[in-house]
Amino acid sequence: MKTVVLNYGSGNIKSLSNALNYIEFDHVVSNDIQTIKESGKLIIPGAGSFANAIKSILSLSLRDVLLDLSIHKQIPVLGICLGMQIFAKSGSEGGWTDGLGFLNGDVTVMNPPNFNLKIPYYGWSSLTNINYNSRLMRGISETDSFYFVHSYKYEGESVSARYLYDGNVTASVEKDNLFGVQFHPEKSRHSGLQVLKNFRDIQ
């Protein structure tokens, strides 16, 4: 069973693919429905806006396929950045749009209390509130830092780690077979590669 990296027209897939190759995580990059239906694991990258990402998924007729894989077949799914955010019920970026609805939560713009803090936030941050039962964050501690680039944040159920910016921002989520990270593991040194390895090793 192949691991498929979903190519739905957003995101820097090259970097992600490089990182997966580096840790010898066999994968294919595809937007072909048949290939996706047969995948054993799925990685959903993402950059761009919430509304556009959902629009691409609908135009590729992927919505039902993703629901079937994630909710019924329960294959391991990893969402990265926007790819995690679209797990939510809805998001405000690009106009309020329904998400995939895997997680009970919403995605809204960050609102830093301090005017020195900018949107989008891009930079390195270390994590807080790590759930040490998390399978995805195994081996990760508060001394590891990760690279973030985003303006919108997820807030809702199943948060497994946070970082401090606009309050405690969601850094990762985990619910059964669903995994998501707000940061870019493919750009976060060996800490990021560790997260990808953890996903690789999930049975």
Binding site: N12, K14, S15, N18, N21, Y22, S188, G192
Partner: peptide, 30 residues
Amino acid sequence: ISSKCFIPICGGGGVTSIHDCETLSNSGID
């Protein structure tokens, strides 16, 4: 470089168009 480098990459030198940016983005710059 990007096949071995897992930190953010900024690239440039001679960039003059959106098309150049797309080319570099596809090669792995952030």
